[in-house]
Amino acid sequence: MDQLTHPTQLQEEEILNVLKQFITEVIGEEFVEDIDITPQSSFTKDLEMDSIEIVAFSEKVKAHFGKDIDFTGWLSNMDLDEIINLNLGDITKYIRSCL
C-alpha cells in the first residue's frame, strides 16, 4: 500500500523538485531542457524569469504548500531587486522552515 508523505516530512530535495516542476510549468518545458536547475539558480540571471513569471511561480507555491507558509508575506519584506536575485535554495529553505 502506498504511504502518503506528510508535508512535514518533506526534505529540501523534495521541495526543490516541486519548485523545478513549477518553473517548468511557468516558462515551458522547451526552455527548461537547456537549463540546469540547481539550488543556486536565481530567478532572472539563471532561469531568465521576468516579473510576471515570478508572480505565476509564487501563486503555484502558495497553492501547493497552502497556508502553512506565507510566501507572499515573506517576499513582501524584500524589494524587487532582492526578489529577482533570490535563488531556489533560499526559497527551499524558507518553505522547509515553515513546514
Partner: peptide, 13 residues
C-alpha cells in the same frame, strides 16, 4: 508593464 508592479510590495501592504 503588468500587475507585478503591485504584487510583491504594495499589494501585500
Amino acid at each position: 508593464t503588468n500587475l507585478s508592479i503591485w504584487y510583491f510590495n504594495i499589494a501585500p501592504l
